[in-house]
């Protein structure tokens, strides 16, 4: 997805965020070894972060001069949640975060199973039987490829240790 530049809500906010991030990154890069020598460990990180600072400022200036100032903050926020982060994206992001952070406790199989089941039923909207069978089939094939064939030790989880 790539909207035309003028149609991107909150683009200026994003440009500010990356500029601040770049400045912080440069400060952290300077902290590594400062300007102590021309071949110290911090030279390249400073070069990279410096480039980020420079380019993000250019992006910031360009965005500030070209963005459409007609929207009020409320309108901009409404557009942001409609075009950039609609409820569907937000819901999947939350689900994804819950999935990945629950993995150390539930283990790979249980957490992936739950994630697939919930997201299939939310996005796909078919009957429970169809959703369940697609979940089971996907999980079985992933388990077979990674665990059986490639012998990747999948996270077992604190609560179900020794079960899978």
């Amino acid at each position: 997805m790539s909207n035309a530049p003028s149609e991107r809500p909150a683009e200026l906010v994003f440009a500010v965020i990356i500029s601040v991030f770049s400045v912080v990154a440069f400060w952290q890069a300077y902290e590594i070894s400062g300007f102590s020598s021309s071949h110290s460990a911090g030279v390249f990180p400073m070069l990279a972060a410096g480039t980020m600072v420079l380019s993000s400022f250019i992006i910031l200036c360009k965005t500030a001069t070209s963005s459409v100032p007609s929207h009020r903050t409320i309108e901009e926020l409404r557009l942001f949640f409609r075009q950039v982060l609609p409820f569907r994206q937000f819901a999947i992001l939350v689900l994804m975060a819950a999935y990945l952070f629950s993995m150390p406790w539930l283990g790979f199989i249980v957490s992936s199973g739950l994630f697939l089941l919930i997201s299939f039923s939310y996005l796909w909207g078919k009957g429970i039987l169809a959703t369940l069978s697609v979940t089971a089939a996907s999980l079985a094939s992933i388990y077979f490829i990674f665990r059986v064939v490639f012998q990747v030790v999948l996270p077992q989880g604190e609560w179900f240790r020794g079960l899978f």
């Binding site: 999935y99 697939l116 996907s138």
Partner: peptide
């Protein structure tokens, strides 16, 4: 394959692929 199935699958595959 419907995107509603493909997208969650990509996320799980990405997780297990990174872990591997």
């Amino acid at each position: 394959c419907p995107k509603a199935i493909l997208i969650p699958l990509i996320i799980v595959l990405s997780a297990v692929g990174t872990y591997a």
